[in-house]
Nucleic acid binder design. Sequence first.
DNA 1: CTGTTAGCGCTTTCAA
DNA 2: TTGAAAGCGCTAACAG
Lengths: 327, 327
Amino acid sequence: MADRARRPTLADVARLAGTSTAVVSYVLNDGPRAVAPQTKAKVEQAIAELGYRRNPLASALMAGRSNLVGLLVPDSSNAFFSELAREFEREGKARGFLTLIGNTAYDPAVELDYERAFADLRPRGIFVTSITGDAESLDGCPRIYVHSAPAGASDPCVLFDDVGGGIAATRHLIGQGYEDIHCIAGPDDFGPSGKRERGWQKAMSEAGLTTEGRLHRVSFERLGAENALRPLLAKPGRPRAIFATTDEQALAALRAAAEARLTVPKDIAIVGFDGIREALNGSSRLTTFALPLAELARRAFEVLDGWNAADNPSHIIAGALQRGETS
Amino acid sequence: MADRARRPTLADVARLAGTSTAVVSYVLNDGPRAVAPQTKAKVEQAIAELGYRRNPLASALMAGRSNLVGLLVPDSSNAFFSELAREFEREGKARGFLTLIGNTAYDPAVELDYERAFADLRPRGIFVTSITGDAESLDGCPRIYVHSAPAGASDPCVLFDDVGGGIAATRHLIGQGYEDIHCIAGPDDFGPSGKRERGWQKAMSEAGLTTEGRLHRVSFERLGAENALRPLLAKPGRPRAIFATTDEQALAALRAAAEARLTVPKDIAIVGFDGIREALNGSSRLTTFALPLAELARRAFEVLDGWNAADNPSHIIAGALQRGETS
DNA sequence: CTGTTAGCGCTTTCAA
DNA sequence: TTGAAAGCGCTAACAG
């Protein structure tokens, strides 16, 4: 029976191959110095024989950086963030990184805590969908804001065109002939939801329509939103059309509408935002402004690739309205 | 301007406190040796002054184990696994661990790959919802199967009572007077879905009901399942009641029923399994056998706590039927 | 082309 | 109670 946790080391490989640890390292890393084909063969033979695997902790300690990346989201069990996280993990894996995941639970203190704990592991970078107003330096660990960033962020951002999306969604409803278009937004006007809300406002005022009394601040969470929307849809002067800043809220509106015995889109039209799978393929196909999450992940990793001590590019990614059954 | 990535080390702290690195380490770890209160104060002062943070890579290299845990799931963007992952991350954080996440995409080769890559980081343990038939040793890295395990697993398992749940769900339908109860199962009879299917079979035969021609193998994925179920529900001899082995499939059945203009539960009753949020709080509240994911996570970490080189306990966790609007 | 060796930052003997 | 020093496993100068 083998020793429970004893794994072969570089030195073991070198010994078996009859060479030095340096050479083994050169073979493993294909550099920085060349190795004679014969020696190389012997080393590879020894590696295979011992089933050697490099200890990434030692490499990382030496190099000052690990093969990890961190991802911080508010709530990875929320459909949107879980789909986002999946894309980051996929893209990271394709590039040889392992992904650390952290849920900030919409709490800035937790976000900070996690940023520090991740940064301590000297990851290649940390992707943050931030819910914080400002941020501290991570001592040289690259931080890239994705999907959501603090206002005057000094770190690079890869964001969606939330304002443009809000405009497009609203214009779509206006184009259908609706005028009484209400906006279901988040609890405050921060972050992506706030920008989508401003897009709605812009499109409305461009069309000469008032937003007065048509903005509703509700929870991002399905049940909370539904409870808040029920009375709105039950009363006589109910909206004829709704732009919800997230699909989660649009789905809540859909349910509230069903409870109020309203037919969608005849009695009320609903447009969402995000393009989560449940919206696109759920029991009612929502009209929604869909976001390309795979592209978000790709672009974010590209920023990491080209990381530069001085300054780094930010990106805005476009989405597209997906016409469903609700508008 | 400070050097970009230069962080203070133990040696810096020791120098500033006018003591040795050993003593600083004793203070940091509150052991293994005692330190004079005065010295301790000076060290703590120096730590605060420098903003020192321990390098966990160095600690882990030394100790042979890190502050990480790994979690492998087939698809973390699937609602069930995303809720499961969230609970593991939460529980891990509460215990001071950082969580690595990996998606196996239902591919045994990827599962193996990830297990090895995670194990290389010397994590405290790896939690696996396995889709593989068998597994290799991880060289001393604890592996705990959660929710789904290979048949003759030699590693400890924390599982749900899938057979019991299948029985309970089926008996519930039988209790409602249904006899023509069909089972919507996964593509094969492996894993949790297979056990739930066997529960259905058991309850049916106990009640003297036939399962002949009433088992349907469909995809776990919403759209695939829906496509497969549409013809089943459209034809004249359609089932009067359905037990779906996952909520995802139950939701697909619900949608197919709606398309076939069937009223639930009048025309057809549907019972799901898992208790994902969309099932419990979605646009139709599903009757479903709900699983306590937080308890799964807690029990899994407890097994890790009590890890024993020789053998480790396995656990079976009970679920409970949640009555919704669909039965 | 290859071997020796000095660390990366931390923990823990061993000696004082 | 403390300090010096030997590693954990790997990388990369430096010197052959």
